[in-house]
Write a protein that binds this DNA or RNA. Structure first.
Lengths: 327, 327
DNA sequence: ATACTTAATGCAAACGATTGCATAGTGTGC
DNA sequence: GCACACTATGCAATCGTTTGCATTAAGTAT
């Protein structure tokens, strides 16, 4: 059904090798302009599409990079996908997307047919999985808050960012500061949580964690209202991300709580929406463009030179102070 | 370097065929439990990973579906990606993502190594591309506002939605109603635009289009302020999507314009953020979950039965009336 | 005219799986 | 003890490319 190089060869009166050299581009300089022209002509007429499977079977390259994401939910994630896809596309590669929030152990998840893996915000327990890939010569680059010793990474130092955020809340006078986080992200190694705990300890303040079931705004909005009812009102809240912060914001406003006077609020990530609230939201802005660019650079550097030393880059986030935490 | 079935065969003392039958699952019932066990054991020890390229070369299946998106920018897109990826994953398939907003004609875009294509909000001019794929037996399913005669589709009737929205604006008393749209989406066949034009014509009102360079909120926010300065204030605005509507909302509030009293506002899509404005935003909610589910159903139905008749499903969106358009 | 280089092309062996068909082994009925 | 069915396995062809090496043809220096 599909056109093969053999058919083209027959029609053009040349050998399959010649067709391959013309069409793959790999040996095009060896071919005389006239045959080249003829082959291209025939290929076009027969609507030839190379069989990528056959090609990658022999070349060992798929020209596809896997993008592993912990979640694909918010505009923040969309932005990451778009930035990465764009870079990969410019390198002539496709993007295979995989959400790893659910269990990865099942089914086909281990069978990657890609040239490399970009992992965004993937927790440390995946190290075990990645080791298998690396042993097979499959580059893995991690991007996000997590620092891995085994793989190349570009990390945004959200621990430092968290410290700045919580110290800022303390400095504006908050004394009962809570940290809100979704259940799945609530584990050791969550840089924001660690930073929160550290900053509170150094200030001699007690910690309190508010756990939400998921990252949806509505969840945070509901949970914060219940929480306030049961435990009273904190005077500052640091949120794992902006989505939750916006949910909290909305939930509190519905209770008639004034932000920032009653509760000061700081989110994390720096998504666009934080600007678009009545009381603009303070947040820890991640340098997303830079992160995605560098992650791709690292990946392609390793593809070009598989034995280079493992490299880690740490980027500093920036505290964007807005009205929600100023008083 | 990588383990092959041949190596496993040698270690386990069986033939490659046997190993294949065990590992591919396709002939597992033919194999005695004891050899089966032994092969699995060896495969595990040698950390076997099947070579997908080789497999799909002979089976003709890649177990990968391409998801074509016009844009990947907002939480709306993230939601689509997540829903689709989830469905495909449940079918054991991977998701290859491709943003087609930029030119598709260049480079590798035509060489798809997938089992099918899901196209979300992809404009009609892609018909030409899809025809090539279909001729090769590659199923294409379109989802979104567009109705295609050539391929299976599940369309949200945004024309009907647009009509309802604009008539609603007229009904609450607006007389100078503008339609805001980004430059790229502003072409014949944009269902929302067509609906706007139709509704205005039937009411005997003049049309006016406000063109923004892109879908970012900040763009709409800037453009609307310039627009108001140059042409004065409309008393109603219907926006191509919620992102723009939120940008407009913000831009107008900065001008001191009151919503909905001075300007009534309706967006489109029904993203979560519309609820989280001081003046909640009216919007045309798309039944996203249903759409994604049905699109995948159509795709798998066609994969199972390639010659079935082309099927189209039309879903009705819903006008969510909120404060931004009630007066 | 000969030897030697260079350019253009073909031959055939991979790449790593799957699968139709053949075959060896094992039990069953008569 | 023979024919037969059935189960478990192996053989070898095949999928559609790429690519190292051989070969032919043409040009060039001696």
């Amino acid at each position: 059904m599909r056109t093969t190089i053999r058919q083209i060869a027959k029609v053009a009166g040349v050998s399959p090798s010649t067709v391959s050299r013309v069409l793959s581009g790999r040996g095009a300089h060896l071919i005389s302009p006239s045959t080249r022209e003829r082959v291209l002509q025939v290929a076009k007429e027969l609507e030839y599409q190379p069989n990528i499977a056959a090609r990658s079977l022999v070349t060992g390259r798929t020209h596809t990079i896997a993008l592993w994401l912990n979640e694909i939910y918010t505009s923040f994630h969309a932005r990451v996908v778009q930035l990465i896809e764009d870079h990969l596309w410019q390198h002539g590669d496709d993007t295979l997307i995989r959400r790893v929030g659910r269990s990865l152990l099942a089914s086909h998840a281990y069978t990657e047919h890609v040239d490399g893996i970009l992992a965004h915000e993937c927790p440390a327990y995946l190290d075990r999985v990645w080791k298998v890939f690396q042993r097979r010569g499959l580059p893995v680059v991690s991007a996000g808050a997590y620092v891995h010793t085994q793989v190349d990474y570009v990390a945004v130092d959200l621990f430092a960012g968290g410290l700045v955020a919580v110290r800022h809340l303390i400095q504006v006078g908050c004394r009962r500061i809570a940290y809100m986080v979704n259940a799945e992200s609530c584990h050791v190694g969550d840089a924001r949580r660690d930073a929160y705990d550290t900053a509170m300890r150094e200030a001699g303040l007690p910690t309190e964690h508010i756990i939400v079931p998921d990252q949806r705004r509505v969840a945070s909005s509901v949970v914060i209202r219940e929480y306030v009812q049961n435990y009273g009102l904190p005077d500052g809240i640091f949120c794992h991300n902006d989505e939750m912060a916006i949910g909290v914001y909305h939930g509190l406003r519905r209770l008639g709580v004034h932000i920032p006077d009653d509760v000061a609020l700081v989110g994390c990530d720096g998504i666009e929406d934080t600007e678009y609230l009545e009381v603009p939201l303070s947040t820890i802005r991640q340098p997303l463009e830079q992160m995605c660019q560098l992650a791709c650079d690292l990946l392609y550097a390793r593809l070009a030179e598989p034995n280079r030393e493992t490299q880690g880059i740490v980027l500093q986030p920036e505290l964007v102070m807005r009205e929600s935490s100023l008083r």
